[in-house]
Design a protein around this nucleic acid. Structure first.
Lengths: 227, 227
DNA sequence: ATAGCATTTATTGTCGACAATATTGCGTCA
DNA sequence: TGACGCAATATTGTCGACAATAAATGCTAT
């Protein structure tokens, strides 16, 4: 499995498939940041009609991965240091709330599972498996967001924010020395949730994301962003 | 700017107009909560082709005002006590962050304007103008959200959450005795922003929204929700 | 009479063509 | 030579028709 498939991409219609394909290509940088999305071009390349391309682009707009202007067209969103900051501000806010809610809404079984996940993650980290560092982190956040049991929160993060976050990570070259400290932070968050301490869970999650932002931001020099 | 422009409904295309019209009709309850949105019916009623109806419905879906299932169709979102709670949880989270950011990002001029707005609001409240109670509240929150200078935050609230909030308010019969206390809360928030106290601004805003939720929730008995 | 299946009907998904708008390129004029 | 305006071109917006899928109806068999 080479893609981090957290969301099950169950494509039933052609527009679904095209949307998932386009989203992948944008996040992975196959379609460059800032590039124009010509409907006719894409229709040819993906061998579908313009209608399904328009549908797909429309959904990409919902994720904030592209921006569309009437009678002009759609462009892949531009990455910028300011954009990253704004993104992480929202993430801090929403995931903080998710942790707070998870502390009261997650079942004991779910919390136990989360603890087990963390243990397995710890094993992988010790063995130096860099892939699982990323995957483990994603899984962790995913579970807490789902644990909030709040549909709005879940869809905003899963369908929107996270893809943009991943786009920044991929296109700036991810992987960092923050793994072990991040793991400790995860552990403390789970502990707070396990203690049903909503207040603390939120605070720890917000700090965790703040640190994460600072870490990414450090490698973000304007020259690294290709226009 | 985006196709989903903030507040000002600048419709340039037919799909824009139809989208705004449909959104109004849904929020105001002209189209009942839970109702099915037949593409062919709407195309006839609004005198446009199915393509623009589909486009409009697609945008309504991003606002979370309708839910669509593949090969089945779209329905207006159902209102429920749980939905209201979830909605206000994300509102608390996002607007709290907005207040925090506004405290550092708003200009002195903007803060002064906000203070002036509050004064005028106070005059209207004293004279018992109930319409301005609602409008004033909306204005206040808009300004702070805009003051955050965070595009994601702004679009999430302005294009999404607020319309749903309004839908709940309208369809449950708005207006409450909370006006004067809410006004005091507004005043304290502005004071915190004026002092550039981001931490306090966030906390006060979160409490303000929490109180607001409790107030609405009190009149929300299951029988008031028409299925 | 009812459960299950086939057929019919209605609704959504997809397509290609045309209309409206923006962009580009050229020519003219100061 | 440069700037403005008009024509040519390309791209998006809109439309009606057809295809594919789901819902409704009726038929048959037990």
């Amino acid at each position: 499995m080479n893609t981090l498939s957290y969301a099950t991409e169950h494509a039933v219609t052609a527009a679904d498939k095209t949307f998932f394909q386009l989203r992948r290509d944008i996040v992975e940088g196959v379609i460059r940041s800032g590039a124009k999305l010509s409907e006719t071009d894409l229709a040819q390349k993906y061998a579908v009609s313009r209608a399904v391309i328009r549908e797909a682009i429309s959904r990409l707009e919902t994720c904030h991965l592209v921006e569309r202007k009437a009678n002009v067209g759609a462009r892949v969103v531009a990455l910028s240091p300011e954009g990253l900051v704004e993104l992480y501000q929202v993430r801090e806010s929403l995931e903080g709330m998710a942790a707070r809610l998870a502390a009261t809404h997650m079942t004991d079984a779910e919390i136990a599972d989360l603890g087990a996940l963390l243990d397995s993650h710890f094993q992988k980290v010790k063995s130096g498996d860099t892939y699982y560092q990323e995957a483990g982190d994603v899984d962790f956040h995913y579970r807490i967001v789902l644990g909030s049991k709040n549909g709005h929160l879940i869809s905003m993060l899963m369908d929107g924010i996270y893809h943009l976050v991943r786009m920044y990570r991929v296109q700036l070259g991810m992987a960092g020395p923050r793994v072990t400290t991040a793991f400790d932070e995860h552990k403390h968050i789970v502990q707070a949730i396990s203690n049903r301490d909503a207040e603390l869970a939120e605070m720890l999650m917000r700090r965790h994301i703040l640190y994460s932002k600072n870490n990414i931001q450090k490698k973000l020099t304007p020259t690294q962003l290709k226009p």
